[in-house]
Each structure stands twice: as C-alpha cells, then as structure tokens.
Amino acid sequence: MFDIEKSFAEWRTQMLAAGIKTPVPLVELENHLRDDVEKEMLSGSAAEEAFEKATRRIGLAWEISNEFDKTSKGQRSAKFWWIWLWIGSCGLAVTVSMNLVGRFVLHRGSSLFLSHQWWADWFPSYAVWISFTIIGSVIAIGRWRHTGIKVNQGLAVAAGASFILSYLLPAADDESGTSCFIECWRVLARSGRYQIFPFGWWSYYSGFVACNLFFVLLFVAILVRTPLVRARRWLSLALFLQVSSWAIVNHFSVWTMPLGIGYFIWLLSFVLLFGAHLVPDGAVSYSNFLAPAGNASPTRQESRHS
C-alpha cells in the first residue's frame, strides 16, 4: 500500500543528497510539494498519482540544486573579489603610511615623492597595490549583484575613492592636494598675490576648481543614472584633459615644481570617471539573471517525461 509520508521522506532524502540545504529552501520546497499533492487529491486523484504528478511538476533535485548553486557561486565569487580589494587597500594604506613616515618623520631622501630614488624604492610597491586595489574594486563592485551595482558604478566608486585619497597626499611641491585646491580657489577669487594674475593663467587655474566641482556632479550622475549620457561623456573627457594638461604645463613652464603622488592619483580618478561614463549604463540584464537557468532545465525535464 502506498505510504505518502514515506514517499515524502524519500523525496526529502533525494533533495538533501542533491545538495538542497535545510531548513531553507528544503522546507519551502516540501511545503510547496505538499500543497500541490493536497490540491491534486482534492481534484480526485489517488494519493500515489497525486504525489507522482506533484513531484514531476516540482522538478528534479539536481536541477533545483544547480539553480541554487548559481546563486551561491556568485556570492562566493563576489566575496573573493571583496577580499582581494580589502588586501589591496590594506597594502596601499601601509605603503602610503610608510612612505609618509619616511618622508616627514625620518626625513629620508628616497621617500621624497617622485625623486630618483623614490622610483626605485617605492614605485614598485605603489604600482602593485594600486593595481590590486583598482582591479579588485572594479570587479568586486561590478559583481556585487545584491546591490545591482553595475561596472560603471564600480568605476565611479573607485574614482571617488581615488579623488578623496588625492586630497590627502602630496600633489605638487610637497603641498597636499587640499592645499593645491585651496590655492586654485584663491586664483579664482583673485585674492592676495593673484590679483594681478594674467587672464589666461587665471582661467586655466580656475579650470581646476571647475574640474573638482564637475567631478562631484558627474560622480553623482553615475550613481543616480541621470540622462544626457553623451554630454556627460564629453564633459568627463574635457575634465580629464584639463587635469592631465597640468603635467605638461608644469614640465615646460619656468617655475617647474615636483609633482607628488597625490597629483597622479587625482589624475587617475578622472581617468576612472571618464571610464565610468564611457561604459554603457547596463540597465536590467535578463541574461545575467535568468538565461543560464533557461538553458539548463527544460531539456532534461522534458526528456525525462517524454
């Protein structure tokens, strides 16, 4: 005689063997199955037939398990890249701290940003950790499906982080990025010694103030997905060109000053911002979410019962 509870127990064992976790989602699936069996029996089917139909409808254990695995694999992958990003950030923080201690506490010549010895002693470490951090931040944030954050938003976040960091580091002539920004504001306001600044130079240095302000606007624009994509793209390119021009102007000008790491990180933030506006704003993607499942399940299911 058919024992429905025994059949439920066997079905549960199959599900557990396939890797379906308990209590969630196994309880959910089992209660679904029980609801379906009850409905089938109410419509006149015998218990055995009702159970057979309901188990057929709910699908094969391995198929369901595979679908759940896709979610957990995605989570594991995202976690891996977050750990990667964390390691990169820590490495970069330690390098910057040691470099600053070397420069301002121990007064080591090799710790002077961009000096000849600095390139040999410090640059490899910066290059490794900055690369680590950028790769980690772009991929980790891009893959973080829980928030629905896209690659362009990941780039924008990396740009924002670089932008903030650049304010804390020496940017030009051992002045921090913040000092340089304040200096540019003075130029814009024509305060103090800048009262007699020629118009050409006034507009050029004021342009850096505009760059910083537009950076914030374009950063927000990426996160809230505003329209005017093409305009944003061109504007971010213009900002990048203005910021990068400083390296050239400084190199050829009569009052050349040593550029600090802060300037290059500031420049990097504009590269990333331009990249963020260059990447198409992927709205909701079906393919990421559903297509693999769509390909996986039907064939075996149908072939089993055909």
């Binding site: 699936l29 379906d36 409808r57 198929e63 369901i64 979610t71 499942a293 399940s297």
Partner: peptide, 17 residues
C-alpha cells in the same frame, strides 16, 4: 514553469533586495 525553479529565482530577487 517547473515549480521548483521558482525558488532559486525568488531567492535571487531577495538577495538583490
């Protein structure tokens, strides 16, 4: 729809808040 496949989708929607 194969009934059991609904739950991974619901769980993903939940993960994505």
């Amino acid at each position: 729809w194969t009934d059991g496949m609904l739950y991974p989708v619901l769980h993903r929607l939940e993960d994505r808040k």
